[in-house]
Amino acid sequence: MDVSDILAAQAEKHKAIAVEKEIPLDVDAGFLAVTDPNPIEKESYDENVEEYLQSTARDGVQVLLSALFSLPTTSSPDGPLAQLPPPTTTLPRAKPLPKPKPPTKWEKFARAKGIQKTRKDKKEWDEEKQEWVNRWGWKGKNKEEETQWLSEVPANADVDYDPTKKARDERKARVAKNERQHLQNLARAQASGAERKQRKADIDRTLATTRVSTASMGKYDKKLDGEKKLREVKRKFEPTEVSADVEKKNNLALLAKIGNVPAKRSKHEGNDAAINVRKAVRFASKGEGGVALARRAEGKAARGKAGRRK
C-alpha cells in the first residue's frame, strides 16, 4: 500500500500554516500587530512586487492568526471567545509629561522648615462609639460638637448663646478660610509666571500705541472712565551751567567715538597726514608704482658700485 500521497498531502497541509523565517516575526496579540524584521529579498522583490508583498503579508497574518488560536478560550453562545493578552509593544506618549504643580504657601514653608508630610486616614477611631468614624463628611467627627445633646455654657455667655450654632459657625469659618487660602495659592501660582507679566506689558504697550494712533494723536478720542493719562517719555538735559571742562571732555570723547572723519571721505583718503603718500609715490615713480621705484633704486646702487670699481 502506497501512503506517500497521503503523507505528501498531510505535509503540504502543515506547510501551509507553518511560516519559516530567518528572524522570527514579532507578534503583539494585544494590539493585533505583527512586525516583520526580515530584510527584503531583492531578487523576488524585483521579480514581482505585488506577489512578494502579498506573500509577506500572508505570512504575517498567518503568524498572527496562529498566535490568536493558541490563546486560551472560553465558550459562549456565539462560539469560543479568547481574551487578548495585554500589549507588549510600548508606544510613546501622545502628550508631554504634566508639569509639576507650583508649591502652595504651606508646602514652601514646610520645605523650608523641613516638615515631613504625614498622611492621615480618612477614618478615625471613636472611643465612645467603639467604631471607626469619618474625620469629616457624613457623620464626620468634626461635627461631633454640633450634635451633642448637652454642652457646657461659659459663665459670661450671652442670653441667646447657642453652642451648636457657634460650633457650626466655627467649622464653616475654617472651611471658608481653607477655600480662601486655596484661591490665594492658585492666584500666586498664576502671578508668578513671567509669561503673564510679559503679556500684561504687551497689552499695555499696545493700548498706549492705539491711544495715539488716530489722526489727532488721540486728542479728540472719547475718554473712558478711570482712564489714566498717558505717560510720555521724559526728556532729560544736562544743566546749562555745566562746567566747561566737563563739557569739553564729553565732546572730545564723542569726537573720538564718531571718529570725526566721515566714512565717505575715508574711502578716498585713509589718513589725515600732510603728505599724500600715494600721490608722492605715483609722482616719484612716474606713475609706475612703488615696486618699480624700489627696483630702479636698487639698479642705480648696483650701477654706482660698478662704476667705482672701474
Partner: peptide, 16 residues
C-alpha cells in the same frame, strides 16, 4: 560734529 567735520575734519578739535 559730523556736519562740521565735513568741512574742517580733525581741526574740529581746535574748536572744542
Amino acid at each position: 560734529f559730523e556736519k562740521l567735520a565735513n568741512y574742517i575734519g580733525k581741526n574740529l578739535v581746535h574748536l572744542i
